[in-house]
Design a protein around this nucleic acid. Structure first.
Lengths: 173, 173
DNA sequence: GTCTATAGGATGATAGAC
DNA sequence: GTCTATCATCCTATAGAC
């Protein structure tokens, strides 16, 4: 059985991801979730608490994806997994993903610290592969995947597909 | 003499750039501009009209920067100017710049069309320089400058400086 | 756990005086 | 051009019944 608390979380996730935090009222969330507005405050104390609960879920999902790269031992595979990551995000996690980008700008929640281990791993991988400036190569590739992710979220995956193939060739992975 | 209409535009620009469109009320704008709230609606009809007036200014500023690249005849200089552009934006235009990124996500205003001539020019430049896949190289570099711009706006120019030098070396310009 | 009703304040926008 | 006063609506949040 679908709990009402989850219905709120699901509805709020989609609305926040599409219209931002300040662009959505608790009234709209309640209607979308087919729930009384008061229930939101019972379960999450206030609107910010609802967002926090969603963000916690989002961080957990992201951690799983990142772990897949960080635990990888083959440097070439680290590059491969980094490049293909934006293209392997499931539809079911699409809203979590979009929300991250939205909030990064709207509320200036950076999430930069969460990316540090990934950056370190890329740094290590480029070093192993004999690149002259592994740190800069790592930052560049991270910037690229960030912007490609942004492109996927805004214009659709089709528009970025060819860049994946191009990058895989470029980095010989 | 500073007109009150301009005071409104200036105050609104800073507030929108820092807190987003939905994060700022007309009341707050009026107080920041030291102006009565009603005056905003006299001059701009409604809140959206105020944003539109600011965006028009922003597009004009951006057009000037882009023209500097598009009219360039030397392909190496096209790459040079593209890479250094994010590092040459004046402090006075900082809020216009930040607003573009904010609104791209909050209101999903893409501004993609405005970038097309720039992409075409990069495509041409990479072709002239004998790159095998000029279209993909162009898209990659545009993605990079987009993400580096984002990094400058979020974490400051210092954090991205070394990437500029690295890119200039990489592309030999 | 869930709903209804409602408080108290903020919000976008208008009217009318100067 | 500008201000003050005001309005209807919407917003977050709480109280109390079931």
């Amino acid at each position: 059985m679908i709990e009402r608390k989850d219905k709120i979380l699901t509805a709020a996730l989609e609305l926040f991801a599409n219209h931002g935090y300040n662009g959505v009222s608790t009234n709209k969330i309640a209607k979308a979730a087919e729930v009384s507005e008061g229930l939101i405050f019972r379960h999450f104390k206030n609107k910010q608490g609802l967002l926090d609960a969603i963000l916690e879920q989002a961080f957990e999902k992201a951690a799983v994806l990142y772990a897949h790269i960080i635990t990888e031992q083959d440097p070439k595979q680290v590059l491969y997994k980094t490049i293909t990551l934006p293209f392997s995000v499931e539809k079911s996690e699409y809203y979590f993903w979009k929300l991250q980008f939205k909030l990064k700008w709207e509320l200036e929640i950076s999430g930069k610290e969460k990316m540090q281990p990934l950056l370190d791993k890329l740094n290590w991988a480029f070093g192993e592969l004999g690149y002259e400036h592994p740190r800069e190569e790592a930052e560049l590739l991270q910037h690229l995947t960030e912007s490609i992710s942004s492109g996927i979220l805004k214009d659709g995956m089709e528009t970025q597909q060819h860049l994946k193939d191009f990058l895989l060739t470029k980095y010989k992975v």
